[in-house]
Amino acid sequence: MASNPMHQFSVYKIGPEIKINGVDLSFTNASLFMLISATLILLFLLFGTKEKKIIPNKVQLISEILYSFVSKMISDTAGKKAKPYFPFIFSLFIFILFCNMVGMLPYSFTVTSHIIVTLAFALFIFIGVTILGFVIHGFKYLKIFVPSGVPIVLLPIIMIIEIISYLSRPVSLSVRLFANMMAGHTMLKVFGGFVISLGLVAGWLPLTFSVALTGLEILVAFLQAYVFAILTCIYLNDALNLHH
């Protein structure tokens, strides 16, 4: 079913079946592309930090630009206190970025187009940030649900809204990335299918769309990685600097 636009998202196992206590932990194509992205990241960073030059070469320059980019993003949104979490945000951004970009290659698999992967990230961030907030501020962290300057009459409603919005954070964070990646790749596949079915006569029209969409998808791949990282920073900021 090569022309089914959803087929590209199917997961199948590669190699032997690994079962621990009846749980299937087999190495799948998703794991393979995670590994490929990770390898590319490590290679990129390895070449980027191989030579310590005062005047950097291209790879070193890119790695330094990436470092400054993430560093600036964190200090702009979460302030100085977020410095210990810089490696995590950096890894998160670069991992999602590389997974998205590797997904743009033809015949590849997009790791971040799976809700379970993005949900795992989002839940980890959500739980981590909540624990961090309670560890730093104690029960004062609950103040996050009580915005200052709200009339007492409105307070219960506002609190309920705030609690719902807080609890929906992992859902919105994960679904945003997952849906963006899935929708983009499905669209690309659908237009690709049009090119084949319309043939030489009218196939150029969806082909043009396809080319334009590929450009758009590369932008989206970067943008979604950025959005994911910056939202993580914003949540971190809420936990670190409680001034609601």
């Binding site: 087929h7 749980v23 299937d24 932990l25 087999s26 490590l42 890894s91 991992f95 795992a120």
Partner: peptide, 23 residues
């Protein structure tokens, strides 16, 4: 959607945890 098929969910999270933590 293949994404909603839970067969390999735990496997994906497992490998993600290993790979991301090593990164």
């Amino acid at each position: 959607m293949p994404q909603l098929d839970p067969t390999y969910w735990i496997s994906q999270v497992f490998w993600l945890a290993i790979i991301f933590s090593s990164i």
